[in-house]
Write a protein that binds this DNA or RNA. Structure first.
Lengths: 220, 220
DNA sequence: TCGGACGTCCCCCGTGCGGGGGACTCGGTT
DNA sequence: AACCGAGTCCCCCGCACGGGGGACGTCCGA
């Protein structure tokens, strides 16, 4: 059975152009054309096409908002491809966050649009190369380890160990038990950590450790 | 002038296959074939091709390591496309982090490999659709706001305000000055925050706030 | 061989902190 | 009217904490 497609764009000319492209493919069937985002949402809910191709700029509800509404429905099985004339980073992030299966520029060659629909239908995703480039850069920094915080290199191994335990909100006595040393020893380490890092008290130490990424916040 | 390409793969058969593909394109010139990662790095440094196509599994130095060495050189202008038989998330992350311009599966149709080289050469990037899908999912969660931490809804507006100041490592006296209230008042708020959240002391409160994303760590 | 860094343990002392009370004002609900 | 939650201020008490000292052993490099 053919893949069903919904087209959403406020320019009738562009819609008929895309429909013509799909009509060249026997296994692709364009089951609806709409001119705004709200209509796209309702028609997707009614017809449940395999793929919805949405322009970002549309009246009443833009393509991003429509995408969010469509994909936030847990019963939905329609994949969403977003089309845009100009790419903006904000658009991309919002689109990907909403779970779009594609983010493409309208300059895309017709045959690639067809292949994009097939890619989306089988559950994969596709991003325009010019956007991918910037996405990688952004993704890389989000993976990059935080730069070594200032002053950390002054600490000995033991002191860093103690700092991590402070950051985990352990008391001196708890740290002592955990390291199997006396609590007076821990006090010494703590004092050295504070003075070496220029911190007033252990509360500042906890903040320092977390802000500088010494403690991994809820693992993603 | 033609685009120059370097091929790196430990299978001679695959190299000659790819070379044959490139030879069908007048504007693509395969300037070198190497069989391991170390050779790839030195040849890229010597020949400075426009694009290097690297297999991930290679002797001596794998494609990821080679990518990192190539792209860590600030004088480098060669773009890197990575090829792999099986995709693993870890591979992808490392590749993107290193700054690769592409991450493709060997199942890729030949004509798409050609187009990928052109995409990379012009500075854009390209990721295999099956990988993109998972990348989006991962990217989305990295953008997702942290879920509302447990217990936070028990706090009044004022108490939340105080909690944020505690998280910023302010002392009771400093919080009092900042809020223009007496320090006895602050003590009351702090006590309520601690008991409502089940925290032992302000140190735990600082850790709680940071772990639950109430305080934005170094903005990316 | 002598230092110096590191890790360990000890004492004193002042104070910020947190728990336990209580009390007052406001605003909104019943 | 009575009530209650939120915000404000006050007192007392115990204690963990942090700064100031000093001391001792080990290991390593000068």
């Amino acid at each position: 059975m053919p893949l069903t497609v919904l087209l959403a764009d406020d320019h009738a000319m562009l819609r008929s152009g895309m429909r013509a492209i799909f009509d060249t493919q026997p296994d692709l069937q364009c089951v609806a054309e709409v001119a705004d985002g709200r209509a796209a949402v309702t028609e997707v809910a009614r017809l449940r096409p395999d793929v919805a191709v949405l322009d970002i700029r549309m009246p009443k509800l833009d393509g991003l908002g429509a995408t969010e509404m469509i994909l936030s429905d847990p019963a939905n099985r329609t994949k969403v491809l977003l089309l845009t004339t100009y790419d903006s980073d904000e658009y991309v992030y919002r689109a990907l966050k909403a779970g779009a299966s594609g983010f493409l520029l309208k300059s895309l060659p017709p045959e690639e649009l067809i292949s994009a629909v097939r890619v989306a239908a089988r559950g994969d995703a596709l991003i325009d190369p010019s956007v991918t480039q910037r996405l990688i850069a952004r993704f890389a920094v989000s993976l990059a380890p935080p730069p070594t915080p200032p002053g950390l290199e002054l600490l000995t191994a033991r002191e860093r160990e103690v700092l991590l335990l402070i950051a985990a909100a352990y008391s001196n006595a708890e740290i002592a038990a955990r390291l199997h040393v006396g609590d007076e020893t821990v006090k010494t380490h703590v004092s050295r950590v504070l003075s070496k890092l220029g911190l007033r008290d252990r509360v500042h130490a906890v903040a320092y450790a977390h802000i500088n990424g010494l403690v991994r916040a809820r693992p993603h």
